[in-house]
Design a protein around this nucleic acid. Structure first.
Lengths: 233, 233
DNA sequence: AATGTCATTATGTGCATACATAATAACATG
DNA sequence: CATGTTATTATGTATGCACATAATGACATT
């Protein structure tokens, strides 16, 4: 059997994928080493390396020095959700974006917020509540605390036209963050703002971002009923 | 000022990240080309390329041939959720895993399922309902349809001990899939199985996987109240 | 048997070079 | 002036080579 030669790393990747899908290499199996594959595919080892590294990044292969490369036995599917600016998200779906500021003041947040943001319990933060609107219908309720020690410039922003969501993403650097998704029953308050029946099930996203060891902002986004987050595997 | 030399692609990446965070390079800015950066950093162009490519993969940079590399103006945060086998998920949190099969039969699915799986409306599929249990408490309800034309071997599986979730991930190849998250109010049925109050807000994951153009399985996972999906940014 | 040493091995990475490819700008031509 | 051609430029990638590094196993030593 004469194997065709694979000229680029994508085609090598495709062929390796094919073998995994066709179960020629089963989960847990050790696959040939880079040098051998390079020989077989008629390309350089670095080309094979590139292909296998990409697959390992996607969780399909486990690689360890000396131990070799094996097909992941628990093929962990990685769902990558793109968290964009809400305005962009809405506009990309061809809907009209609207925005309405509900509240903007400085206050001492509840202790739970203080604790997670690691700010003092006597420290005032900037509190913003706002509604994002798609095609004149409520889309998501944003409830945010901003650490003004870290982002003093936020104090000069009215957030009347531009949402804190958008302003912060454009103007504030951050190094890392956490994000969590869960479902919650709507409070009377949320129901009236989002114009939905009480006790609706709402998708909630909590996000907390840090600049090095200082908390920048903590935000809760409550989406209207039926909202879906989707992505491909 | 004498610039230190950067010996590896990670340190180049770190330095580029620093400049972005420090706003030396702002969103939308064009950054120097690879050759210049290589010169500045005292390394090879391929090293710079590796670093910038990695950052572009993470959505922090936009790169286009000839046009050059610029800092992403809409820094789209990418939240990567690892979707593992539920048993593993539970065990990794140090909890005891339990499993209970509720239903296993062959039936013609509702039209909505047929439509999304692109199977005929007269075609019988394998229907599985099962409960995943963490520390003796209901964790998630799995409701699944399996295309037995594609996975005939599933017909020989009792799914009494091993969940369909786990069996399929280990035994069935797939090429692509879709996944969606949303919140739903519990039905009476779900409430009793998950042992939660009626009208609880539950996190629901719908997943549909394909092997090339044939649907493999469609599954709905309904998690108990309070369940969170978390990841880091 | 337990422990330590060392050679071996497979992946990880850096570098110089070459060429491919996409996008753009400059230019020429009708 | 519009349009097509060409040169230029920055990224994309393949290759061969070298060396780094982690993990392993074989072997020796206690």
């Amino acid at each position: 059997m004469n194997t065709p030669t694979f000229r680029n790393w994508q085609s090598v990747q495709t062929e390796v994928l094919r073998r995994i899908h066709a179960r020629e290499w089963k989960p847990g199996d050790l696959i040939p080493n880079e040098a051998d594959l390079a020989l077989e595919f008629g390309c350089a080892r670095s080309t094979v390396n590139r292909a296998l590294r990409a697959l390992a990044d996607n969780g399909l292969l486990d690689r360890r020095r000396k131990a070799g490369t094996r097909v992941a036995s628990q093929p962990v599917a990685k769902a990558t959700l793109d968290i964009a600016v809400i305005r962009t998200e809405i506009e990309e779906r061809g809907q009209k974006y609207g925005y309405q500021l509900i509240l903007r003041n400085q206050a001492i947040p509840p202790v739970a917020i203080c604790a997670s943001m690691q700010t003092g319990t006597t420290e005032q933060l900037l509190h913003i509540r706002a509604l994002h609107i798609a095609d004149d219908k409520p889309y998501a309720l944003e409830d945010r605390w901003i650490n003004t020690t870290v982002v003093p410039k936020a104090l000069n922003e009215p957030f009347q036209e531009i949402s804190a969501n958008e302003w912060l993403l454009k103007n504030t650097p951050y190094t890392n963050g956490e994000i969590a998704f869960h479902a919650a029953v709507s409070t009377p308050d949320e129901s009236s703002i989002l114009n939905c029946p009480e006790h609706s099930a709402l998708l909630v996203i909590d996000r907390l971002t840090w600049d090095n060891s200082l908390s920048v902002t903590k935000v809760r986004l409550v989406f209207g009923p039926g909202h879906q987050l989707r992505t491909i595997l």
